[in-house]
């Protein structure tokens, strides 16, 4: 029966159950989001506030923008069976590159953005090459790159540096009704990544490689190229997050990514969204749901004036419960 060898032994006793309707993780995560919004609204309402007024929506969406960008990139890496621990420092580095290149000069916006994307892509390339050519485990490879970036940042910067021109701050603060423009951009990019993962050949290859790299290779997929692509795209998304943060903060901040813990946080959002950590299953839609849940939780806690440290406790518990639920339902969710 279940002598099938799984890469990570999550599925064990895949009890053969009848073909019942099964909640996929993606559906679950959005149901959970709705439930959270209802419960949150009630709780905040009891304290005399309103959760989903304009300020509340703005708050949730602004929080979602950076994490969303990073997590969408992280989704590609994780689906490919990899993961990226270097994004947090990369975000800091990219915000610095952006702000220092611009140095308050409007005409330097375009070159700065291009430069950031080049820097991010090369870091992603290094990640990918260390994994594929040096055959280092993705965890170690990206942790190593993260430590190198951290050393560079700590050695060269002590605090914020550079400044972005006023015109560039529109990216961070403009909004259409209650929806920040940057959030729309983020969702647009997420839609693009969804299309890429679900409708293009390389996207399918990512799922194939994440599912079983040996089988993918024997089927003629260029596995190394796929992994490198996933990492370059993941780093590019982190670069975009850095650009957005530079525009919001007005300058580059070396530790902005690390202080917010975007490395582990983005992995948490991806996994919360139903993507399997071992790769091969999941997707961007769930990730966005996971991101929205995390930022809604934050906003609810802020509105309730809960101790900020309590947030972490709840996050940890939510994360574990969510993955435990997915692990339970997966046995019957994927019989073929």
């Amino acid at each position: 029966m279940s002598v099938v060898q799984e890469k990570v032994s999550v599925v064990r006793r895949a009890a053969p159950q009848g073909r019942r309707f099964v909640l996929t993780p993606t559906v679950t995560v959005y149901l959970a989001l709705v439930a959270l919004l209802v419960v949150g609204s009630v709780l905040v309402g009891l304290k005399g506030g309103v959760l989903l007024d304009e300020g509340g929506i703005l708050n949730i969406l602004t929080r979602s923008t950076v994490l969303g960008l990073v997590a969408v990139g992280q989704t590609m890496a994780i689906v490919t069976g990899s993961l990226d621990l270097s994004v947090a420092y990369l975000i800091g580095l990219c915000s610095l590159v952006a702000a220092e290149t611009m140095a308050g000069d409007t005409s330097m916006i375009a070159p700065a953005v291009v430069l950031v994307l080049v820097v991010a892509a090369s870091v992603g390339l290094v990640n990918g090459l260390v994994i594929t050519v040096l055959k280092a485990n993705a965890f170690i490879a990206t942790l190593g790159v993260a430590l190198i970036l951290r050393g560079y940042l700590e050695h060269n910067y002590t605090g914020p540096a550079g400044s972005v021109p006023r015109a560039f701050q529109h990216l961070g603060y403009d909004r259409i009704g209650p929806i920040p423009a940057a959030t729309l951009l983020m969702l647009l990019i997420a839609a693009g990544v969804w299309w890429y993962l679900r409708r293009t050949r390389t996207g399918y290859h990512m799922y194939a490689v994440g599912g079983d790299i040996e089988v993918a290779r024997l089927s003629g997929v260029r596995t190394s190229r796929t992994i490198v692509t996933a990492h370059v795209l993941c780093s590019l998304m982190a670069g975009l997050a850095g650009i957005f943060l530079a525009s919001r903060l007005g300058s580059g901040a070396p530790y902005v990514g690390m202080d917010a813990g975007y490395d582990l946080e983005s992995i948490a959002a991806v996994v919360l969204g139903g993507t399997v950590l071992a790769g091969g299953r999941g997707g961007v839609v769930g990730t966005i749901g996971g991101v929205l849940i995390l930022s809604t939780l934050d906003t609810v806690f802020d509105d309730l004036a809960v101790d900020p440290f309590f947030k972490n406790v709840v996050r940890g518990v939510v994360l574990i419960i969510a993955v435990a639920l997915y692990a339970r339902s997966k046995g019957n969710g994927r019989t073929s």
């Binding site: 990570v8 406790v313 996050r315 518990v317």
Partner: peptide, 27 residues
């Protein structure tokens, strides 16, 4: 127990535990 009984990958379990401990101690 969470890793073996609830079948959650240990990476996630201990990441969750990291968040819980961090938060709880300072709370």
């Amino acid at each position: 127990l969470i890793t073996t009984r609830l079948l959650v990958p240990s990476f996630i379990v201990t990441l969750g535990m990291l968040l819980v401990l961090d938060g709880a101690v300072f709370l």
